[in-house]
Amino acid sequence: MAFIEIENITRYFGKVHALNGVNLNLQRGQQYAIQGSSGCGKSTLLYLLGGLDHPTSGTITVDNKVLGEMSDDELAAYRNQSIGFVFQFHFLLPSMNCLDNILLPAKISGTSTKLVKEKCLHFAQVLGVTHVLKKFPFELSGGEQQRVNLIRALSMGPEILLCDEPTGNLDSENGQIVTQLLKDMAVQLGSTLVVVTHDKQVASQFPHQVFMRDGVIVN
């Protein structure tokens, strides 16, 4: 049985059919790239996996739990404990410094920030951004912001790391670096990594590649 089972998922936004019956199985600890052109439904699929949205029909099962059967509170806990999101736009809050931004998920869950902080400092060292932790997001370069974003996503030790165009705002050199870091960190944590990208070069670095077109998987 697969770690994540996606069965016949559809997602309609009014007349727009973002997903038209997607079936996909993802194995624990593996790394996947979902690629396709803009508007093909890849981000929608990612958000459904992350419990940020509900499918119009079909089921998503993660570790034998059906997301559609979870209560709002259970879904919130799932997002907090099991999922790490890396968004294309870093979504760092401008009024807080980077460390406070990183510790937000821990504060939301009520877990000890001391332990999480130690872990995050280690990640910051690995990712080479220790020097920016006391800085505010606007003082950072795009690559640094994305790394801070990555540390925040990893802070709770997620089972699944979901990344939506993580290199979309970076030049190719920084894009390469961030992609490699994502892969390394996922291996280090044993997380399942799912990256959505329209960049073939980025996708080619992943052992499993899923192609989407018009809301369906084509390979």
Binding site: A76, A77, R79, F91
Partner: peptide, 15 residues
């Protein structure tokens, strides 16, 4: 923006 981000990061309705 903050409210939706917090929700995305796991803030529940009770909080």
């Amino acid at each position: 923006r903050e409210i939706f981000l917090f929700k995305a990061m796991g803030m529940n309705q009770k909080q």
